[in-house]
Nucleic acid binder design. Structure first.
Lengths: 224, 224
DNA sequence: CGCCTTTTGTCGGGCATCTGACAGACAGGT
DNA sequence: ACCTGTCTGTCAGATGCCCGACAAAAGGCG
């Protein structure tokens, strides 16, 4: 569930405003190059809001990685010991220690709501991933990803519609918890079966949408 | 990741106190029988705190289910469209509409913190599950579960220690995202290799702890 | 256009794990 | 003790997926 809709704009507005809102005092702005990692400076918890660019949150184990979400402008999140962050492009964000935010936010309930909202959102995305991994085969996950991409782009599931795909095979694999090869193979098999066709790189044209829906629904469950 | 430590006791204290704390007004107490489902009455979000008993949060897809967490006294959570709740034993809980809580909590920052804390905790557990599913084989997940069980019971990882297991094979399988048969087979293979021995039902005696640690660390990663 | 790098497609072998089926072990009640 | 239901152990067959390797294709740049 990649690019998701923007979080509470109010926070960003507060932080970007030229005034001296008390909240602005605890946040620092930092910039990242493409590919740069957001290192955990100490073992304190941090909270941040994306201002521009794109940050990929992922789990890392040895040489494998699983992408959890792509955070974009307005998205708010907190550093988490087990999560790595990497800029997918030049990125700016506001960051502050969680404790500091909590102290200030005592008098700013709106921020609290925003935080809860943000956490709940990431929790939801994580749950989607969990569903995918636990219940769906590689083909189902790909189908679900395509359906989500279409929905996110505001495109109906109808033959002929063009759906943009933000990710390459490798990145898709990392997001879906599988391998480049499996994604590639399944993808092309789905094309041969007529579910959709390739449209240059980075987009596809929908074909037999019923097929896609059935795969996405997971008629055939994982491990079966 | 089964029973986790108790949440903010303050909330429960507030709710259980005989006085007329404003917070108490928005919460209702309900009781459940063993096996009963916590149905989503309408499409509003609810927040609840467990008072007694045990609630299992799980994902459901067709005839398969994946247990996410076992919530116990003091644990706080919110209903989530995709999550089912089931009482594992007679259970009482305080429940309220999220909106109502937010309105009241505007003047009670402590509650906000507790909520954020609770959400973050569940997010953490979800992440653990995700790690398991994405990176570890069945054996690794079982080993990790045993290690967690020991830690939760405050038992050191040393030969001879007795670790209680709260779950049967079937429930363990649901929590670890695998099948009863696989858990049973792996479990007994691990016993034969000397990692631990069975101690009546529901507990085991640790043997070669190094083996256990290695499996838990995941020397051998999933899909490899 | 030709070169080089990155991305994508495909194959064959191997393996973890799922399914379905059945037998043995345990626990509770009468 | 017995029966009875639930839990547990194990097997054989099937399969989805991973891995390593290599070829084909696409894009950037002089």
């Amino acid at each position: 569930m990649p690019p998701h809709s923007h979080g509470p704009a109010s926070i960003l507005a507060l932080l970007e405003h030229e005034g001296t809102h008390p909240l602005r005092g605890v946040f620092q702005m930092i910039a990242f190059e493409r590919g740069q990692l957001l290192a955990q400076p100490d073992d304190a918890d941090y909270i941040f809001v994306i201002r521009t660019g794109c940050l990929r949150a992922f789990l890392l184990a040895f040489d494998r990685e699983l992408s959890l979400a792509y955070l974009r402008r307005g998205d708010m999140f907190s550093t988490h010991t087990r999560l790595q962050m990497q800029a997918g492009e030049p990125t700016q964000l506001f960051i502050a220690k969680r404790i500091a935010v909590e102290q200030v936010s005592t008098s700013h309930p709106a921020l609290q709501h925003a935080l809860i909202h943000g956490l709940a959102k990431v929790l939801g995305q994580t749950m989607t991933l969990l569903e995918d991994l636990a219940f769906h085969h590689a083909r189902g996950r790909i189908a679900r990803y395509i359906v989500r991409s279409a929905a996110h782009a505001g495109i109906g599931l109808q033959r002929g519609q063009v759906v943009p795909l933000a990710l390459g095979m490798e990145e898709m694999a990392a997001l879906l918890g599988t391998t480049r090869q499996t994604v590639s193979t399944e993808f092309n098999t789905m094309i041969r079966e007529g579910a959709f066709a390739r449209e240059r790189r980075g987009s596809l044209r929908l074909g037999d949408v019923t097929l896609l829906k059935n795969w996405a629904r997971g008629e055939t469950l994982r491990g079966g």
